[in-house]
Simulated scan of single mutants.
Amino acid sequence: MEQIVQQSLHNLVQRLRAEQHNSEDRFTVEYDSDWPSVCYLSEAATGDQVKWQPVAMDTPLSFANIENALHITLNEQYCHFFTTNWSFNLLTQASEGPCELLQVCNQEDFERLQQNLIGHLMMKQRLKQPPTLFFGLTDEEDFILSVDNASGEVVLEQVGKHPVRCLAPDLATFLDGLR
Rank of each mutant, 00 (worst) to 15 (best):
E76W: 00
Y78G: 05
L101W: 07
I72N: 03
R15K: 14
L171C: 08
A172S: 14
Q3W: 04
V55D: 02
F81V: 01
D142V: 01
C166E: 07
T138K: 12
T138D: 09
R126D: 14
W35G: 00
N85W: 15
R17G: 00
D109G: 13
E111K: 12
L90M: 13
Q77F: 01
Q20M: 09
Q3L: 11
V147E: 11
V55C: 12
N85Q: 10
R179M: 06
E108W: 01
E24F: 13
Q107L: 13
Q114N: 03
K51F: 13
A172G: 08
T84N: 07
L70T: 01
D25A: 13
A150N: 14
Q125L: 07
L102W: 14
I66Y: 00
Q115D: 09
S23H: 12
L127N: 12
S33D: 12
W86V: 04
S87L: 08
Q49M: 13
G97I: 05
Q158T: 05
F88H: 05
L90N: 09
F88V: 04
T46H: 12
N149P: 10
E76C: 09
L101F: 11
Y78T: 03
F82R: 14
D32I: 06
V104M: 07
S151H: 06
E140V: 11
Y78R: 10
S87Y: 02
M1T: 02
